[in-house]
Protein backbone atom coordinates (compact mmCIF):
# COMPACT_ATOMS: atom_id res chain seq x y z
CA UNK A 1 0.00 0.00 0.00
CA UNK A 2 1.75 3.04 -1.32
CA UNK A 3 0.49 6.61 -1.67
CA UNK A 4 -0.02 8.01 -5.14
CA UNK A 5 2.58 10.58 -6.16
CA UNK A 6 2.09 14.20 -5.05
CA UNK A 7 3.97 17.46 -4.94
CA UNK A 8 5.42 18.34 -1.59
CA UNK A 9 5.49 21.82 -0.14
CA UNK A 10 6.94 22.56 3.25
CA UNK A 11 5.29 25.46 5.05
CA UNK A 12 7.54 27.10 7.60
CA UNK A 13 4.83 29.38 8.92
CA UNK A 14 1.08 29.56 9.16
CA UNK A 15 1.06 32.29 6.56
CA UNK A 16 3.13 30.16 4.21
CA UNK A 17 0.68 27.28 4.71
CA UNK A 18 -2.27 29.53 3.92
CA UNK A 19 -0.47 30.88 0.86
CA UNK A 20 0.13 27.32 -0.35
CA UNK A 21 -3.52 26.41 0.23
CA UNK A 22 -4.61 29.53 -1.63
CA UNK A 23 -2.30 28.72 -4.51
CA UNK A 24 -3.23 25.07 -4.91
CA UNK A 25 -6.91 25.19 -3.97
CA UNK A 26 -8.67 21.90 -3.29
CA UNK A 27 -5.74 19.96 -4.78
CA UNK A 28 -3.84 20.69 -1.59
CA UNK A 29 -4.03 19.02 1.76
CA UNK A 30 -2.37 20.07 4.99
CA UNK A 31 -0.33 17.42 6.75
CA UNK A 32 0.67 17.80 10.40
CA UNK A 33 1.59 14.43 11.93
CA UNK A 34 0.02 12.67 8.97
CA UNK A 35 -1.59 10.01 11.12
CA UNK A 36 -5.08 10.60 9.77
CA UNK A 37 -4.04 11.41 6.21
CA UNK A 38 -1.23 8.96 5.39
CA UNK A 39 -3.34 5.84 6.08
CA UNK A 40 -5.97 7.13 3.65
CA UNK A 41 -3.28 7.98 1.09
CA UNK A 42 -1.79 4.50 1.32
CA UNK A 43 -5.13 3.02 0.29
CA UNK A 44 -5.41 5.79 -2.31
CA UNK A 45 -8.68 6.81 -0.70
CA UNK A 46 -7.07 10.24 -0.56
CA UNK A 47 -4.95 11.36 -3.51
CA UNK A 48 -4.06 14.97 -2.89
CA UNK A 49 -2.04 16.60 -5.66
CA UNK A 50 -0.10 18.72 -3.19
CA UNK A 51 0.86 17.99 0.38
CA UNK A 52 1.53 21.07 2.45
CA UNK A 53 3.67 19.88 5.34
CA UNK A 54 2.97 21.97 8.43
CA UNK A 55 4.41 19.40 10.78
CA UNK A 56 7.89 20.86 10.78
CA UNK A 57 7.07 24.49 11.47
CA UNK A 58 8.11 26.19 14.69
CA UNK A 59 5.43 26.99 17.23
CA UNK A 60 1.81 25.93 17.53
CA UNK A 61 2.91 23.08 19.76
CA UNK A 62 2.60 24.47 23.25
CA UNK A 63 -0.06 24.24 25.93
CA UNK A 64 -0.47 27.63 27.58
CA UNK A 65 -2.43 29.06 30.51
CA UNK A 66 -4.38 32.05 29.21
CA UNK A 67 -6.27 33.00 32.33
CA UNK A 68 -9.77 31.66 31.77
CA UNK A 69 -8.76 29.06 29.26
CA UNK A 70 -5.96 26.79 28.16
CA UNK A 71 -4.66 27.36 24.63
CA UNK A 72 -3.34 24.30 22.84
CA UNK A 73 -1.39 24.77 19.63
CA UNK A 74 -2.86 22.78 16.77
CA UNK A 75 0.43 20.97 16.19
CA UNK A 76 0.61 19.70 19.76
CA UNK A 77 1.05 15.97 19.73
CA UNK A 78 -1.37 13.68 21.52
CA UNK A 79 1.39 12.53 23.84
CA UNK A 80 2.00 16.12 24.96
CA UNK A 81 -1.69 16.55 25.71
CA UNK A 82 -1.78 13.22 27.51
CA UNK A 83 1.13 14.17 29.75
CA UNK A 84 0.27 17.85 30.35
CA UNK A 85 0.10 18.70 34.04
CA UNK A 86 -1.66 21.93 33.18
CA UNK A 87 -4.43 20.07 31.41
CA UNK A 88 -4.47 17.54 34.20
CA UNK A 89 -5.37 20.33 36.59
CA UNK A 90 -7.66 22.39 34.39
CA UNK A 91 -9.20 20.03 31.81
CA UNK A 92 -8.46 16.47 32.88
CA UNK A 93 -11.03 15.06 30.48
CA UNK A 94 -8.97 16.23 27.50
CA UNK A 95 -5.78 14.85 28.97
CA UNK A 96 -7.43 11.49 29.52
CA UNK A 97 -9.11 11.35 26.12
CA UNK A 98 -5.78 12.05 24.41
CA UNK A 99 -4.41 8.94 26.13
CA UNK A 100 -7.18 6.90 24.51
CA UNK A 101 -6.23 7.80 20.93
CA UNK A 102 -4.69 4.92 18.94
CA UNK A 103 -1.59 3.62 20.67
CA UNK A 104 1.53 5.27 22.13
CA UNK A 105 3.47 5.29 18.87
CA UNK A 106 0.55 6.93 17.11
CA UNK A 107 0.27 9.45 19.93
CA UNK A 108 3.91 10.41 19.56
CA UNK A 109 3.23 11.65 16.02
CA UNK A 110 -0.43 12.47 15.70
CA UNK A 111 -1.52 16.03 16.53
CA UNK A 112 -4.65 17.38 18.16
CA UNK A 113 -5.20 19.78 15.28
CA UNK A 114 -4.82 17.10 12.67
CA UNK A 115 -7.23 14.82 14.46
CA UNK A 116 -9.88 17.51 14.90
CA UNK A 117 -9.52 18.85 11.34
CA UNK A 118 -10.02 15.31 10.04
CA UNK A 119 -13.49 15.39 11.57
CA UNK A 120 -13.85 11.67 12.03
CA UNK A 121 -17.04 10.84 13.99
CA UNK A 122 -15.32 7.76 15.39
CA UNK A 123 -12.32 9.53 16.87
CA UNK A 124 -11.98 10.45 20.50
CA UNK A 125 -10.82 14.04 20.65
CA UNK A 126 -13.82 15.68 18.98
CA UNK A 127 -16.04 14.32 21.72
CA UNK A 128 -13.78 15.86 24.33
CA UNK A 129 -13.76 19.33 22.84
CA UNK A 130 -17.53 19.17 22.32
CA UNK A 131 -18.14 18.23 25.92
CA UNK A 132 -15.70 20.85 27.14
CA UNK A 133 -17.26 23.61 25.03
CA UNK A 134 -13.90 24.42 23.45
CA UNK A 135 -13.31 27.06 20.83
CA UNK A 136 -11.23 26.45 17.72
CA UNK A 137 -9.15 29.11 16.09
CA UNK A 138 -8.75 29.07 12.32
CA UNK A 139 -6.58 31.31 10.21
CA UNK A 140 -7.12 32.06 6.54
CA UNK A 141 -6.19 34.70 4.01
CA UNK A 142 -8.69 37.06 5.67
CA UNK A 143 -7.20 36.59 9.12
CA UNK A 144 -8.21 34.67 12.22
CA UNK A 145 -11.64 33.56 13.36
CA UNK A 146 -13.02 31.57 16.25
CA UNK A 147 -15.33 28.63 15.74
CA UNK A 148 -17.27 27.05 18.58
CA UNK A 149 -16.68 23.33 18.84
CA UNK A 150 -20.38 22.72 18.36
CA UNK A 151 -20.20 24.49 14.99
CA UNK A 152 -16.99 22.85 13.84
CA UNK A 153 -18.09 19.40 12.65
CA UNK A 154 -20.32 19.88 9.64
CA UNK A 155 -20.49 16.50 7.89
CA UNK A 156 -18.79 13.16 7.50
CA UNK A 157 -15.07 13.99 7.54
CA UNK A 158 -16.03 17.62 6.96
CA UNK A 159 -15.43 20.63 9.16
CA UNK A 160 -16.18 24.33 9.14
CA UNK A 161 -12.64 25.01 7.92
CA UNK A 162 -12.52 26.56 4.44
CA UNK A 163 -10.17 25.10 1.84
CA UNK A 164 -7.71 27.89 2.49
CA UNK A 165 -7.94 27.89 6.27
CA UNK A 166 -5.74 26.25 8.83
CA UNK A 167 -6.69 25.26 12.35
CA UNK A 168 -4.14 26.91 14.61
CA UNK A 169 -5.31 26.62 18.18
CA UNK A 170 -7.79 24.93 20.47
CA UNK A 171 -9.02 26.93 23.45
CA UNK A 172 -10.40 24.92 26.32
CA UNK A 173 -12.19 26.64 29.19
CA UNK A 174 -10.62 25.99 32.56
CA UNK A 175 -12.75 23.70 34.63
CA UNK A 176 -10.70 22.64 37.60
CA UNK A 177 -12.82 20.52 39.88
CA UNK A 178 -15.47 19.71 37.31
CA UNK A 179 -16.66 16.12 37.18
CA UNK A 180 -15.87 14.28 34.02
CA UNK A 181 -15.89 10.89 32.40
CA UNK A 182 -14.93 9.33 29.12
CA UNK A 183 -16.49 5.95 28.33
CA UNK A 184 -14.91 4.36 25.30
CA UNK A 185 -16.30 1.05 24.18
CA UNK A 186 -14.29 -0.97 21.73
CA UNK A 187 -13.26 -4.55 21.16
CA UNK A 188 -9.53 -3.99 20.89
CA UNK A 189 -7.67 -1.31 22.79
CA UNK A 190 -6.00 0.38 19.83
CA UNK A 191 -9.21 0.71 17.84
CA UNK A 192 -11.69 3.47 17.35
CA UNK A 193 -14.66 3.50 19.63
CA UNK A 194 -17.69 1.50 18.62
CA UNK A 195 -19.45 4.06 20.76
CA UNK A 196 -17.94 6.58 23.11
CA UNK A 197 -19.40 9.09 25.53
CA UNK A 198 -17.72 12.11 27.07
CA UNK A 199 -19.29 13.91 29.98
CA UNK A 200 -18.41 17.08 31.86
CA UNK A 201 -20.34 18.09 34.92
CA UNK A 202 -19.68 21.61 36.09
CA UNK A 203 -22.91 23.00 37.40
CA UNK A 204 -24.63 21.94 34.25
CA UNK A 205 -23.69 18.79 32.40
CA UNK A 206 -22.57 18.37 28.84
CA UNK A 207 -22.45 15.08 26.99
CA UNK A 208 -21.05 14.16 23.62
CA UNK A 209 -21.07 11.01 21.53
CA UNK A 210 -18.48 9.18 19.49
CA UNK A 211 -19.45 7.20 16.39
CA UNK A 212 -23.18 7.75 16.73
CA UNK A 213 -23.69 9.56 13.45
CA UNK A 214 -21.89 11.14 10.51
CA UNK A 215 -20.26 13.73 12.75
CA UNK A 216 -19.03 13.96 16.31
CA UNK A 217 -22.06 15.23 18.22
CA UNK A 218 -23.49 16.45 21.47
CA UNK A 219 -26.08 14.23 23.12
CA UNK A 220 -28.50 17.12 23.30
CA UNK A 221 -31.56 15.23 24.46
CA UNK A 222 -29.67 13.53 27.25
CA UNK A 223 -28.15 16.85 28.26
CA UNK A 224 -31.61 18.42 28.35
CA UNK A 225 -32.91 15.58 30.47
CA UNK A 226 -30.18 15.73 33.07
CA UNK A 227 -29.98 19.53 33.13
CA UNK A 228 -33.74 19.76 33.34
CA UNK A 229 -33.79 17.87 36.60
CA UNK A 230 -34.22 14.39 35.19
CA UNK A 231 -32.48 11.35 36.60
CA UNK A 232 -29.44 9.66 35.17
CA UNK A 233 -31.74 6.97 33.86
CA UNK A 234 -33.85 9.60 32.10
CA UNK A 235 -30.74 10.97 30.44
CA UNK A 236 -29.56 7.47 29.53
CA UNK A 237 -32.88 6.72 27.90
CA UNK A 238 -32.47 9.79 25.72
CA UNK A 239 -28.82 9.15 24.92
CA UNK A 240 -29.24 8.41 21.25
CA UNK A 241 -32.13 10.75 20.49
CA UNK A 242 -31.22 12.59 17.34
CA UNK A 243 -28.31 10.28 16.59
CA UNK A 244 -28.04 8.19 13.44
CA UNK A 245 -25.56 5.48 14.35
CA UNK A 246 -23.90 3.40 11.66
CA UNK A 247 -24.27 -0.33 11.05
CA UNK A 248 -21.00 -2.17 10.74
CA UNK A 249 -19.19 -5.34 11.75
CA UNK A 250 -18.83 -4.10 15.30
CA UNK A 251 -22.47 -3.43 15.86
CA UNK A 252 -25.72 -2.42 14.26
CA UNK A 253 -27.58 0.80 14.92
CA UNK A 254 -29.88 -0.74 17.53
CA UNK A 255 -26.95 -2.11 19.51
CA UNK A 256 -25.11 1.21 19.29
CA UNK A 257 -28.24 2.95 20.53
CA UNK A 258 -28.29 0.61 23.49
CA UNK A 259 -24.58 1.08 24.12
CA UNK A 260 -24.95 4.86 24.06
CA UNK A 261 -27.56 4.56 26.77
CA UNK A 262 -25.39 2.33 28.97
CA UNK A 263 -22.35 4.52 28.44
CA UNK A 264 -24.23 7.75 29.12
CA UNK A 265 -25.42 6.24 32.37
CA UNK A 266 -21.90 5.20 33.30
CA UNK A 267 -20.44 8.54 32.24
CA UNK A 268 -22.96 10.54 34.25
CA UNK A 269 -22.51 8.31 37.27
CA UNK A 270 -18.78 8.86 37.16
CA UNK A 271 -18.92 12.57 36.30
CA UNK A 272 -21.47 13.34 39.00
CA UNK A 273 -20.03 10.92 41.53
Amino acid sequence: MIPAAFDYVEAESVDAAIAALTEHGDEAKLMAGGHSLIPLMKFRLATPGVIVDIGRMEGLNSIDDRGDHIAIGALTRHMSVETSELLGAEAPLLKHVASQVGDPSVRHRGTIGGSLAHGDPASDLPAAILALGATLVAKGPGGEREIAATDFFTGFLETALADDEMLTEIRVPKMAGAGWSYQKFNRRAQDWAIVGVAAVSNGSTSLSLVNMGPTPMRASAAEAAINGGGSIDDAAAAAADGASPPDDLNGDAAYRTHLASVLVRRALTEAQG
Binding site: R187, R188, A189, Q190, D191, L249
Partner: peptide, 16 residues
Protein backbone atom coordinates in the same frame (compact mmCIF):
# COMPACT_ATOMS: atom_id res chain seq x y z
CA UNK B 1 -14.41 -9.24 2.28
CA UNK B 2 -15.54 -6.57 4.69
CA UNK B 3 -12.48 -6.71 6.94
CA UNK B 4 -9.30 -7.50 5.05
CA UNK B 5 -7.01 -5.14 6.99
CA UNK B 6 -5.67 -5.44 10.51
CA UNK B 7 -7.72 -2.37 11.35
CA UNK B 8 -10.94 -4.34 10.88
CA UNK B 9 -9.77 -7.92 11.26
CA UNK B 10 -9.16 -7.96 14.97
CA UNK B 11 -5.96 -9.80 15.72
CA UNK B 12 -5.87 -9.27 19.47
CA UNK B 13 -3.16 -7.31 21.25
CA UNK B 14 -1.52 -7.71 24.65
CA UNK B 15 -4.34 -5.64 26.10
CA UNK B 16 -6.97 -8.24 25.26
Amino acid sequence: CRNPSLMDYLVPSAME
